[in-house]
């Protein structure tokens, strides 16, 4: 981890001098919402009532709230992008000169679906705050992702399928197949015998692999397009390493897809963000980002990805 002193110095030079400006900007958004959105919302209510004869108060109130929220979201989106480009980006380039930060990530929905990391349907996908770099021989890409499913029909609702980080790593062995490792919910809920039977039914295109590490088998379901290659990738040592990672991240999912290893880290918090209320960007937030980034080399070390003793260099 970057020493607290160094991080504090970056914070002092990059964040503190700009905080006043961003505080005023944030206040001006509220002013704009009051001066622009509220009069427009009132006008909308009058129009709806007089010309479209909408009289139900909940409908009128709802329309006004939606309009105000949209205007606020528009201004806030511009504000946070500006903040990220100016503050987050510069803080990270000072703290990690070898890594590259981008506000908008390039992981797209189809690629995310193809990895097989989630089974549920996803039709809303946001990828932002992407950091790329190399740790010795292993290149990586980490992105903050929000994957949701919005149902249509009468009961419209939006369900979050995944929120957190997706870490993409160059794996140290060549492979052509697709292998996915997910927590074994069926065995946890229904017990070993019935859970196993259920796994065999519900795995879709990829076929279940039965591995010899019993504790690994109890915690994870592994499905693959090539049984032998899955065992080649999941050597006994790697299975133990994944079990070690699971202790810190129980909902961990992994996918070996197109030469890369994808790992998920569920998070409820949105990192790399200015705050809407109170302090805009306290040192604590930078410290948390630092902790996330510095977990990557630890993970590369845990998975032993810099050992390149096979044909892949």
């Amino acid at each position: 981890m970057k020493p607290q002193k160094e991080l504090f110095s970056i914070y002092k030079t990059r964040v503190v001098p700009r905080l006043k400006f961003y505080f005023q900007e944030r206040n001006s958004i509220r002013v704009k919402v009051i001066l622009v959105a509220c009069p427009v919302a009132i006008t909308l209510v009058i129009l709806l009532r007089n010309y479209l004869h909408v009289v139900k108060p909940e409908q009128l109130f709802g329309a006004a709230i939606i309009l105000i929220a949209l205007v606020e979201a528009h201004y806030w989106s511009r504000y946070r992008k500006k903040f990220k480009r100016e503050i987050i980006s510069k803080c990270l380039s000072d703290a990690f000169p070898n890594f590259k930060y981008k506000v908008k990530g390039d992981l797209i929905l189809s690629e995310f679906k193809n990895t097989g990391l989630v089974n549920s349907s996803v039709n809303i996908f946001h990828c932002e705050d992407q950091l790329t770099g190399e740790i010795e021989k292993t290149d990586f890409k980490i992105s903050e992702v929000l994957a949701q499913y919005k149902s249509s029909g009468k009961n419209k609702s939006t369900r979050t399928i995944f929120r957190g980080f997706i870490l993409e790593l160059d794996f140290n062995k060549h492979f052509k197949s697709h292998t996915v490792i997910t927590p074994d919910f069926a065995v946890s809920f229904f017990g070993e015998w019935f859970g196993e039977k259920l796994n065999n039914i519900t795995i879709g295109k990829l076929k279940k692999v039965k591995l010899e590490n019993t504790s690994f088998e109890k915690k994870f379901t592994v499905v693959t397009s090539d049984q032998q290659e899955a065992r080649y990738l999941l050597s006994p040592k790697l299975m133990e390493r994944i079990m070690k990672m699971r202790k810190r991240n129980p909902s961990i999912r992994l996918s070996f897809y197109k030469k890369r290893l994808y790992i998920t880290f569920s998070q409820n918090k949105n990192f790399f963000e200015p705050r809407r209320w109170g302090h805009i960007f306290p040192l604590k937030d930078l410290w948390e980002i630092n902790r996330v980034i510095l977990s990557i080399p630890k993970l590369v070390e845990t998975l032993d990805l810099n050992t390149r003793i096979w044909t892949k260099e």
Binding site: K173, H174, L211, E212, Q228, R231, Y232, S235, W310
Partner: peptide
């Protein structure tokens, strides 16, 4: 690589 593949095949 062959050794590791061989080990995987034997496990399979």
């Amino acid at each position: 690589e062959v050794e590791e593949q061989l080990a995987a095949a034997r496990r399979g």
